[in-house]
Nucleic acid binder design. Structure first.
Lengths: 393, 393
DNA sequence: CTGAAAGCGCTAACAG
DNA sequence: CTGTTAGCGCTTTCAG
């Protein structure tokens, strides 16, 4: 394949002129332009600026250009200037694919986008704009490090295969994982393969890997304490089935809030159910049908989804949310501020989570040691009308 | 760099044995394994199966392997079998980066993820899980064609630069665009560069490019007709500011529904405002304060977001949504079915949209002609409680 | 039908 | 400090 220099020489014009003629980026004397275009056609040359063209124009070797570009070797100021000018004049952009092949890096981070159908079906009205925001923050944090995100779908029956495929074909340098569970097979596999990743959420505590998580215990404790401080004596909790890491931690937060207030919760106030509007609705019905002395006037929920179900049931029972029964959620989904009354919720610091996860991932990709790779962040309680009014029962 | 074959020869074992010893994929006689590992260390060999290893094991040239992999040349059944077996035995996966460099393709599609902060601020309570679902569907459709999605962020001040960067560095073969506007500068630029893309939504009608759009006129017409058929005489519409392509089309649908019913709408029922809960709330207040003869008993909205504002105002005025005043939305956001009463809305066929967009994009990338590249799809009216009851005013 | 060989555009020893 | 050069792993003519 001919180079830009070949074309320029054969047409008897400077390299830059040939470039302008071919790229239309600057006006060129008509007959010259004509000649350049003819020569290019003859040599079957298609304009495509590479290192070699820059090196020809700047009269330095390709290595020097690479050094300037990557700061990988000292270059004299004059040479650097000349290189930079040539790059600018030709509008050169390095071919990432070639660089990746050489460096055996892809500068890509894999992230599995959730299956919309799956959660629509499983959770009948599951609400979660969190991942939406999370994706944005992770993308931004990754771009700041020169990485981009590759989105893929995890086949529900075999989530690991997609990860292996991406690794084996050198598509990505690392993964961001979310929606973890106790014995997460994705984490298990990546750990076995010693492939870089960081996760939003913990898993099996005996595994040693990089994660960022939100302190659910602390969050639920603050929500529970908030309701107790508002004068509610009977505060119930709508949680997930026992046995999940995050669920059990959150449930402990409920206990500590009571302990701190010198109280003990009624066993019947502690509900374990599925994370769905429907189940929360049903369980709230049970709570509200308790004898008056024991009936909860406050309900702490593990998610905004559940809080929606609780609120709806409270209203259907002819009670007023925020007046007769206070409710708090978790996640601070945009829906929380849209609901009427607006829902008190625990806001997750998504931007910080994303930034920290990328930090942890970059360190692994660059082979640096990971001192603190188990990061816990505190959620912030955003108080709204669903729990703002002090209770006088 | 030494190859697997070199290691095997020097250790005096078959290639496959060397592979098993190094990969731990199958048990190997201990002393042999030891020897292989030593030789590998000595030659500084790190296990990394390439075409050459497969060719060595199958006793064919690397070209032949490439032929069977890509079906790019006829290969005898026996040879193919041998190649396939070798690939299987060594767990070979082609290095995509090398392939991309050679073929000057990246097998990546760029898609800009929306700026969460932007819409949070601009639209005070903008609701949109549509893009969430859209991303999933596009990812799936792309994967079916062997492509993956690269997500990036558009800098609000200079959205085009990110596109150019991705093109110039050969990161992507095409783009998927959403959230278009009339004279969309992204489309303008991609058109100038003759770079493959397809868009969800139209732009300047004088531009010739591939898009898939939902027929807003037809959608609004069906919603309006639905309310008229339910017995509502006074049906208002909450739309966007005039001058937008999709907005004006939708407004025409409102007119045609009235025309079809042999009626004429009151000018005061036609509202142009910003797509936000807040503004919809305000404007609904104005509508409801009209003299009784003219007061609307039905409100068609351009979005679910606006419908939320309208519903809230109706309730705040002491009226019942779905009984005193019917409301319809657009998009069928998950929130539509969560609201009480549930919101009648126009569902966009996201999966079909995504699949068609990928089809259009693939044709461009493969240089095929694009016969029908202006695709309009009809939204489906999902009737719920916000408009189900016939009106008897 | 199969193989040898020439690169794709870049990086990084190594030599000057 | 700068240049020469050997590949990264793959595809694809072009011969045989």
């Amino acid at each position: 394949m001919a180079t830009l220099k070949d074309v320029a020489q054969k047409a008897g014009v400077p390299i830059l002129t040939a470039y302008h003629a071919l790229s239309d980026s600057q006006p060129v004397d008509a007959p010259q332009k004509q000649r350049v275009i003819e020569v290019a056609a003859q040599l079957r040359y298609r304009l495509n600026i590479t290192l070699r063209d820059v090196s020809a124009l700047a009269n330095v070797s390709v290595a020097t250009i690479s050094y300037v570009l990557n700061n990988s070797a000292p270059v004299s100021p004059q040479t650097r200037r000349r290189v930079l000018d040539a790059i600018d004049a030709l509008g050169y952009r390095p071919n990432i694919t070639a660089r990746n092949l050489k460096t055996a890096r892809s500068r890509m981070i894999g992230y599995a986008w959730h299956n919309v159908y799956a959660w629509r079906k499983v959770a009948d009205g599951y609400v979660n704009a969190l991942l939406d925001h999370f994706l944005y923050s992770v993308t931004l944090a990754a771009e700041a490090c020169g990485y981009r995100l590759l989105i893929f779908v995890e086949p529900p029956d075999d989530p690991v295969s997609a990860y292996e495929e991406l690794i084996n074909t050198n598509r990505v340098d690392g993964f961001i994982i979310s929606g973890t569970n106790q014995d997460d097979i994705r984490i298990r596999r990546l750990l076995d393969l010693r492939f870089p990743f960081s996760s939003f959420g913990r898993a099996n505590d005996s595994w040693d890997f990089a994660y960022v998580d939100v302190d659910g215990a602390q969050g639920i404790e603050s929500a529970t304490s908030h309701l107790l401080a508002q004068g509610h004596h009977n505060v119930a909790i709508l949680g997930w089935p026992e046995g999940s890491l995050s669920g059990d931690a959150r449930m402990r937060g409920y206990g500590s809030a009571f302990a701190a207030a010198g109280k003990t919760p009624n066993k019947a106030w502690i509900v374990h159910t599925t994370n769905s509007i429907h189940h929360a609705y049903e369980e709230t019905g049970n709570l509200l049908s308790m004898p008056e002395q024991q009936r909860p006037s406050g309900i702490v929920c593990f998610s905004d989804t559940m809080a929606v179900g609780a609120m709806r049931r409270i209203e259907d029972e002819g009670l007023r949310v925020g007046v007769d029964v206070a409710v708090t959620g978790f996640d601070d989904d945009p829906i929380a501020s849209i609901l009427r009354p607006a829902l008190t919720s625990l806001q997750q610091p998504i931007d910080t989570i994303a930034a920290q996860m990328i930090d942890l991932l970059m360190a692994q990709i660059d082979g640096q040691p990971l001192p603190n790779h188990r990061i816990m962040l505190a959620p912030e309680l955003i108080v709204r009308d669903s729990s703002r009014t002090p209770y006088r029962g």
